[in-house]
Write a protein that binds this DNA or RNA. Structure first.
Lengths: 329, 329
DNA sequence: TTGTAAGCGTTATCAC
DNA sequence: GTGATAACGCTTACAA
């Protein structure tokens, strides 16, 4: 130890190695210096337990190798998985991730952005709900699942295609009258396109269909009520349902069973997300699978390679269908 | 905008407000200055969109209001929830959280610590597996679920008490020959005490019991094999099982049912963790519930209040029992 | 109370 | 290739 409790600096290393400060800096920045000097510096550094202070470096270079991720929460497995993959992808690129959790509160979201603008990060990946998030023009930002503005890249699954795929699948599995059901936030977002894709497919193919949207504040009970009203003597008016998320599909399924409608015998069900049960690694239901890892890696790539010019402002990644026991096949 | 693309500095604000640099600094540090100056500064700052640069501040003050969390992954709901609560707790204290994911790889863990030592954080909360993690003495560190050394506070649930509680519960529910089953990492950790508590309770109360431990590398099949060997003509040698985790209990239950043993009729099952299914918010099984939020808040509190002296080096938080359908009550 | 100036640890620019 | 020296943006004595 050289000075009680204080971390050693480049100066200390220089003194210890008997070289000039600048030489030490070069060694730690992989700028060529004489081999003998390099060795002296490295040994001195190891002896002192020296680590470069990235705040000082960040101050100088205006680059911190830190990216912020803004997420509503981690108690939803989709978000948790997304955070996991994004963190791993960032680590691969030698970046750190600071995580901010907003509980979907627009105030908290704004506060986060503000915080990050304090040079805490080189860029931001955000999955936000604020309708009018204002992000500084010169803070690189990539949005997930929500289109913020023409200059801000947005990554999401191919929600529209997934909706079409779900409709097509239900029809090809024999459904004559499919239904789309969604419940969620009132803030418009990319995920709304799931329903749009479904509807478009049905219309273009002359399929008789229905679509019903609920808001979070109405509660899932309103969905149950809707189902009850469309169930006559144990028979539902629809023979296939596309639900906007897997977890929602799970509840719909449970409710249908509770009123005597069998899944998939009477009604086939397709969800969206591709979540797996933690305990068995099985899908909750037949589902349109989001490529979470690819979303994460794409977001990181676009953010770090400042590719907002070369890439379209909006990018949708291909989804796939996976059977999960709520369809007949 | 004042200087193309570059963020405004205190100097800019000072010029804009027509005051001295130091005055601006004081305003942003809540150090009293004349009211009229304060207003001038605040208005100038708003006009310029000024944000204090926390790297410069950190460099000066050697304080960054950032805490690092080291976690194996986020794809386990227990870890995800822990991260969520820790992040929220830190935010409440005006701290940021940088997250590092290690996939339980000791190399990655060491790399993280090294990274954090680069003054990237004021402290660390770690849930690690490296047997010999060496953390710098002057980097505040709080460990979760693993005792690292006498000078490093460790927070965990009362694993021992939980083990006792599970045994007691099984016995009070009528079990005559309970079994403890665990599968997990070979690295010793606090969670090993779950079995110890179970065994101690049985021994102290003269209960006939058994305990079997498996390592991750043996695979869950070895557990199944063990159960098969102890099942004779549809009857298991044990009438109660305490499993080291909820997810593990789930698998044990499924396997028992597959060989014709009914839960909870023939065998009662208690797990550990208190995880809830994402889809229904119900427990996976009867379980000893870990106080995740309290663990998170305690870890944060101890880390931030540098209370390592006042607090015991080791701290265990009370668990509770919750029925979840795999016990008879 | 306000303004000035000296660092914090690093990097980059130049003469040597 | 090496080694002083001047920034980077902010805090904090200390002087006015």
């Amino acid at each position: 130890m050289n000075k009680a409790g204080k971390a050693p600096t480049m100066k200390d290393v220089a003194r210890e190695a008997g070289v000039a400060l600048g030489t030490v800096s070069k060694v730690f920045n992989s700028i060529p210096v004489g081999e003998s000097y390099k060795i002296k510096v490295e040994e001195a550094a190891k002896r002192l337990g020296y680590r470069v202070n990235s705040y000082a470096r960040g101050l100088r270079a205006d680059k911190t190798y830190t990216v912020a991720l803004i997420l509503p929460s981690l108690d939803n497995p989709f978000f948790a998985l997304l955070a996991d993959h994004i963190c791993v992808a960032l680590t691969k690129h030698n970046y750190r991730m600071v995580l901010a959790i907003t509980k979907a509160d627009p105030h908290a979201e704004a506060r986060c952005i503000r915080m990050i603008e304090q040079n805490m990060a080189d860029g931001v990946i955000g999955l936000t709900y604020a309708a009018d998030l204002d992000v500084n023009e010169n803070l690189p930002y990539v949005s997930i699942d929500r289109f913020i503005g023409p200059n801000i890249p947005c990554i999401s699954s191919d929600n529209f295609g997934g909706g079409q795929m779900a409709a097509e699948k239900l029809v090809s599995l024999g459904c004559k009258k499919p239904l789309f059901l969604r419940i969620g936030s009132d803030v418009p977002g990319e995920t709304d396109k799931r329903g749009a894709g479904f509807v478009t497919y049905c219309q273009m193919n002359g399929i008789e269909y229905a679509a019903q949207r609920f808001s979070d504040w109405q509660g899932i009970e309103s969905v149950y009520k809707f189902l009850d009203e469309h169930c006559h003597r144990g028979k539902l008016d629809y023979d296939g349902i596309f639900c906007s998320t897997d977890l929602f599909a799970y509840h719909v399924k449970k409710h249908l069973e509770s009123i005597g409608v069998c899944v998939p015998e009477d009604v086939q069900l397709i969800g969206f997300d591709g979540l797996k049960r933690p305990e068995t690694d099985e899908f909750y239901c037949s589902t349109i699978v989001q490529p979470i890892q690819q979303i994460a890696e794409t977001a990181v790539y676009i953010l770090l390679h400042g590719a907002s010019e070369q890439f379209p402002g909006f990018m949708s990644l291909p989804v796939s269908y996976a059977p999960g026991g709520t369809t007949r096949e």
